[in-house]
């Protein structure tokens, strides 16, 4: 069945049992964004230490694709440097636009999102959490720069 291409077990599991779905009061980085197309919204919280993301969480509401992508993201990016997260984010975007063949080792469970390529209108759902994190990181670096 073609629906299996998009609604893979991993995606449904993260949707029904989201990881790190909680507010993180006092987090160094907090950023929210919604997808005006469908009203999905995601807030990402992140704490960084020595240039690495120590802990990442999210809250929000939306479809299975946006919420599972957020859940997988929080698990994958924890412990990575900002540079590594930026590279992974670019590769996730590349995978979702069909331009990048995912490296299974680097992607882990995120490979499950590959099927979304066949549903162009849903790509926005899958990248929402990544957009939020990227904007949070760039705001974090600009406020750090402003502090200097």
């Amino acid at each position: 069945m073609a629906l299996d291409d998009i609604y893979k077990e991993v995606i449904l599991d993260h949707y029904k049992n989201p990881r790190n779905k909680r507010e993180m009061p006092g987090a160094a980085l907090t950023h929210s964004k919604n997808n005006p197309l469908c009203g999905d919204e995601i807030t990402v919280f992140a704490d960084a230490e020595d240039g690495k993301l120590r802990e990442v969480s999210f809250v929000g509401q939306g479809c299975s694709i946006s919420q599972s992508s957020a859940s997988m993201m929080t698990e994958t990016v924890a412990g990575k440097t900002v540079g590594e997260v930026e590279e992974l984010t670019a590769n996730v975007r590349g995978m979702l636009s069909g331009d990048v063949e995912p490296d299974e080792d680097a992607f882990g469970e995120l490979v499950a999102l590959k099927g979304v390529v066949k549903y162009p209108i849903r790509v926005k759902c899958a990248v929402l959490a990544w957009d939020v994190l990227q904007e949070a990181l760039s705001q974090g670096s600009s406020s750090a720069a402003a502090a200097h």
């Binding site: 069945m1 073609a2 609604y7 469908c38 299975s64």
Partner: peptide, 21 residues
């Protein structure tokens, strides 16, 4: 079930509906 997921499932059955605001 989120409306976007409903619409994707319906599309597989050839059914065109609108999902969103």
């Amino acid at each position: 079930v989120h409306p976007h997921d409903v619409a994707t499932v319906l599309n597989e059955e050839g059914i065109a509906v609108r999902a969103g605001h």
